[in-house]
Design a protein around this nucleic acid. Structure first.
Lengths: 132, 132
DNA sequence: GCGACATGCGGGTATATACCCGACCCATGA
DNA sequence: TCATGGGTCGGGTATATACCCGCATGTCGC
């Protein structure tokens, strides 16, 4: 990876990191993107797709499609809100269970990154990520 | 973005950076992934998909599909190699032209990243990316 | 020369991601 | 009341990405 392109470098790092977390989370039956989304849904409680997209800094239609995958797997459920335009999404029991099973796996992945980068590197990564 | 997840942080940074470079490169008619791939094809000369995938650290089928998009736009062309299994890919005149037009745009994007991160931050980003 | 193995590729399937547009619902002002 | 505008969503389309499988071709040992 000696590309001088910052963007290509970040994308490469993102692909490799994602592969690492996906593999780590596989026993929980979710990948990193799904785990991440499930955690946000857990944290926010029943939440609209628009708000979820805003928090995740993703396009709303992307969130809609990603949530649909989770719904198909019965990890989340749509509830009707007062405002009928909204589609409040909440965790199912299976979704909460996936989070519970995923947590130690995610922790392992986090520790592996810290081992790879060292404490100082991990801190710098966090700082750099905040700059975007 | 105060996610404690290294992976989510990197992915978010990758999405935002990609959007920045995509917008910068739009006048050249390519996005960052395509520009990056075109540069590799230029550098390696007529090259097999397998080698391209190895250099780009992407799955071979991903490279095959991405190259197909470039071929449809007449930016690259398949040539027959000695080994009939191979599909040597080379730039067309239009592909070289896209690279030429993209270069200053890409430079602008690079400089914008350096402005955002500062010289020290940019150097750290480069160092971190190498760790993956 | 021929069979076993290796190499290179395409296609199928699935997900993640983005942009645009049209449909729908609700609040507010005329 | 009713039209208008803004918020919310789904769908269409395109790309990037990965894994697996099967086919074709090439190579090597015997």
């Amino acid at each position: 990876m000696n590309t001088p392109c910052y963007c290509a470098a970040i994308r490469s790092a993102a692909r490799k990191t994602t592969a690492l977390y996906d593999a780590a989370l596989a026993p929980a039956g979710v990948n990193l993107a799904q785990y991440s989304l499930l955690r946000k849904i857990e944290r926010l409680g029943p939440v609209s797709l628009t708000e979820l997209a805003s928090v995740a800094e993703l396009d709303r239609s992307t969130v809609g499609r990603n949530v649909k995958v989770l719904e198909r797997r019965r990890l989340v459920r749509f509830k009707s809100a007062d405002d009928q335009r909204e589609a409040a999404v909440g965790l199912t029991a299976a979704g909460a269970e996936a989070l519970r099973r995923g947590e130690p796996l995610w922790n392992n992945a986090q520790r592996r990154i810290e081992t790879t980068l060292g404490a100082e590197g991990a801190k710098r990564l966090r700082t750099l990520a905040l700059a975007f």
